[in-house]
Simulated assay, not measured.
Amino acid sequence: MEIISLQYPIADAAAVKHSKPKTLAIGHFDGVHRGHQNVIAQAVASARANGLQGAVMTFHPHPKEVLGRSGQYQVSLTPLEDKVERFRKLGVEVVYIVQFDLEFAGVTPAEFVDFVLRPLQVKRAVVGFDFTFGARGAGKPETLWALGEPDIGVEIVEPFIQDGDKVSSTRIREALIGGRPEEAASLLGEPYEVRGVVVRGEGRGRKLGYPTANIQQESGFFIPRQGVYAIMAEVEGKRIPGVLNIGVKPTFHDNLPEPVMEAHLFDFNADIYGETVSIQFIAFLRTEKKFGSIDELIAQIHADGDQARALLSAYNKK
């Protein structure tokens, strides 16, 4: 798969000079959830049926970050590099990453079609039913259809409905905020995942008999609700079940400024300081609480471990 970064205007970009006729799925595709997968799959299928390249165009950073609306937009569900990897798994041949800046934000719908899509030899564009483009989101799928005639065909993909409602990034965030990782996984098509580096913590877990990996999460990941989870971790090429807490450790701290992420990996004692760990959220066990004694805390940790082992055993047999 070829990855091409573009900045508007693209007239002199090498990508234009070497471009081949293509079908292009266009969108931000935050999370690459089942609805996005449906759009991209239709683009890939259309490309193959018509002897064209199957391509995706996405935008970075998110338009709301550039336009000063970050209060309306939380961290992406999927950082750019992870999003691109999911495109690859869907059979995409070329990914265009368009830098979204103030100049590009001012491009009209007609300019987008004439000076972006046509130079890239887009013969078919595939977009979701709620796709918008151009300055102030003035362009809609029907606008693209009209502007594309006669040389660019447009396929408009209807919403992907699951459990009576459309699949959306907003719905996935709400599930994660609500402590419903199973629902998020169903909408995404796979468990929600974050990634981080193992750093040294306070060393308290080992003293309690439950050593933990303190994970400093990479930027760009949406962090689910604080609390205790059953997880699957991937480290050093191995998948390991475990239990994870996101929180402020109220039994030991009164005012920890930021929540921390600590994972206890079952039957695993290797030194992984400095290693990158991927965490998949499988099930929410409970909210974080302050315990009256260390013995109460240890008893609860033991119960959490037993519950997580049972849940993960059943999950891994699916």
Rank of each mutant, 00 (worst) to 15 (best):
G247N: 12
R173K: 12
Y210W: 14
N50L: 12
F291K: 01
V95A: 03
A15I: 08
L265H: 06
H60C: 05
K166M: 15
D254P: 03
S76G: 03
V56D: 01
P241Q: 05
E288Y: 14
A310H: 06
R206T: 13
V199N: 08
I282V: 15
P257D: 04
V107A: 05
R225Q: 15
I279C: 09
E103S: 09
E174Y: 04
P9A: 00
Y229H: 10
A283S: 15
L187C: 04
V198M: 07
D151R: 05
H302L: 05
G179V: 09
Q216P: 01
A14G: 15
V84R: 00
L24H: 01
D254L: 13
V66H: 10
E275C: 13
N255L: 08
Q42W: 04
L67C: 00
A310P: 00
K289D: 11
V197F: 05
A138N: 10
V157C: 04
S293C: 08
I10G: 02
E190W: 14
S70A: 15
S168V: 09
V39T: 06
A49W: 09
L297W: 04
I298M: 12
D82P: 00
Q42Y: 04
V94E: 11
V92G: 00
Q53S: 12
F133G: 06
F112S: 09
V198D: 13
L188V: 07
V122N: 07
V198Q: 11
P241V: 03
D101P: 06
A15P: 02
L77A: 11
G137Y: 11
Q99I: 02
P159A: 07
A303V: 07
A47S: 10
T143W: 12
V94A: 01
E275L: 05
P250V: 09
G139D: 12
R173F: 09
G31A: 02
Q42H: 15
R48F: 05
I177H: 13
H264E: 10
G292E: 13
N245S: 12
A55H: 04
R309K: 13
